[in-house]
Structure formats: C-alpha cells, structure tokens
C-alpha cells in the first residue's frame, strides 16, 4: 500500500496561546504534530508494516516545520515531502495535498480529524472533493483486508461500521491507534530519510484572517455554599435565565 499521511505542525496543546499586538505570538512555544494527526500517523505506520508498503509524510509549511516532519520520520514514515509555503488556509493546503496526490496515486490518504490551530476540519473534505474520492471522518478504527478497508466512524450519538475499497481519504481520531514515541533507532534513521521540498502550486486566496480575539475570561465565578443548592437553582433561573 502506498500511504500518504498529512500532518500539521501546531503549538503544543498544553500551551496557553500568548497574543501580542492582536496576533498569536507563537515564537516561544513548543510545536508538535497535531494530536489527531499523531493518531493517524500511528495507525499509518502499523498499516505500512502490515502491508509492507510505503508511507510518505506530507506537511505544507515553511522550514520551521522540519523538526516536526523529522519526528514523523522517526516514528516510522519512510520519506517526507514539504510543500514550502505558509499554510494560509484550508483551501490552499488542500490544493497542495491534492496536487501531490495526483502525481503519486496513493492508496490511502490519512489525516487527522482536525488540526488544533485553525481547527477547520476542512482539509480532508476538500482534498476528497478535489480528487473525487470517498472520505470517512471521524475514523476511529481502520483495518485492511486486501484493498478493502473496514472502518468505525463516529456518527451523532453512536458509531457505524463501514466498508470501502481503496483509494480513499480518512480523517482519524482516537482510538484508532496509540500514539507512538520515536525510539533511538528511529531518531537516528530519521536524519537520513529523504525529505523533499517542493514549491507550492498557485491558488487564489479564498479566506483571510482579519483579526483575532481572546475570549473574555468569565468575569468572576460566583461561589455558592454547598449547604444551599437551592440558591444555585434560583440563580440559574432568575439571574442566568438558562433553566
């Protein structure tokens, strides 16, 4: 199987996002593979092993994303492609991924359910539409039998077991696999695995961030005595007016 795993390079999810001059100031933060993408990567490595296939990791980003890409190589991807561009919006990123996919004909394109920076949950749907492929999101289990995949996907209030032939796009989430931590050998070999840098294809600018806003902190938590829950009911009814 030829598998493509698309990863986004995002600030560590434990971090508070600092803002400076009305913009996120990400300079001092640690960057990681987005959590959902990390789940997808872990499963992709297992499926590559199972099918003795080839796993390519793709990231649309500038040179600062390379440590994150190397980490994916250390976890087990065979080679990497970096599309050298700022990932300005989902349409831009999807256009780049679709272009790479057209050139390489992957059996499977795995992504996360959503990135954890701009959280659009859009790239997989766009890539699928651009390539005319079926798409499963969120995919919580993915097994292969020849070229037929069996997946669990979450639906509103439950789950569904579905079957479909390759090729397809899937946006993954736990519990599809356990996150993998690179071992020493992985880290060493990652340094010499091929990482190809390609130029982006041109696209029109579809969306543009105009400004940011940090949510107002909840003004002040009103504390209610544990012995007086009636007061909570009263406040919810007459002050917050939510019941």
């Amino acid at each position: 199987m030829k598998i493509l795993i698309c990863i986004s390079h995002v600030p560590d999810t434990n971090a508070k996002i600092p803002f400076k001059d009305g913009k996120p100031d990400l300079a001092g933060l640690t960057f990681v593979i987005a959590p959902y993408d990390d789940f997808a990567l872990a499963r992709a490595v297992e499926l590559r092993d199972q099918t003795a296939g080839k796993l390519t990791v793709l990231c649309v980003g500038k040179a600062d994303t390379e440590p994150t890409i190397r980490k994916a190589l250390a976890i087990g991807a065979d080679d990497a492609i970096r599309v050298d561009a700022e990932p300005t919006d989902a349409f831009f990123v999807a256009t780049q991924i679709a272009e790479i996919a057209k050139q390489n004909q992957y059996d499977m394109i795995l992504m996360g359910r959503e990135s954890s920076d701009y959280n659009g949950g859009q790239v997989h749907g766009m890539v699928a539409a651009m390539l005319g492929l079926p798409c499963i999101v969120p995919c919580m289990k993915l097994d292969l039998n020849g070229n037929v995949a069996t997946m669990y996907r979450e639906i509103e209030g439950g789950k569904e077991v579905v079957e479909l032939p390759t090729p397809f796009v899937a946006g993954c989430q736990e519990p599809i696999a356990e996150w993998k931590i690179p071992n020493m050998r992985g880290i060493m070999t990652a340094k010499t695995k091929p990482l190809k840098v390609v130029s982006p294809v041109a696209t029109a600018i579809s969306t543009q961030v105009a400004s940011y806003e940090v949510p107002a902190a909840r003004s002040n938590c009103k504390m209610i005595d544990a012995a007086n829950v009636g007061q909570l009911v009263e406040l919810l009814k007459n002050e917050a007016k939510v019941i």
Binding site: I17, F19, P24, Y118, A204, I205, S206, T207, Q208, V209, A210, S211, Y212, E213, V214, P215
Partner: peptide, 8 residues
Amino acid sequence: AYTEVALN
C-alpha cells in the same frame, strides 16, 4: 481564541 475571517 476567536478569529474574524474574511471570505473573499
């Protein structure tokens, strides 16, 4: 955070 996005 929130962002305001212009749809072009």
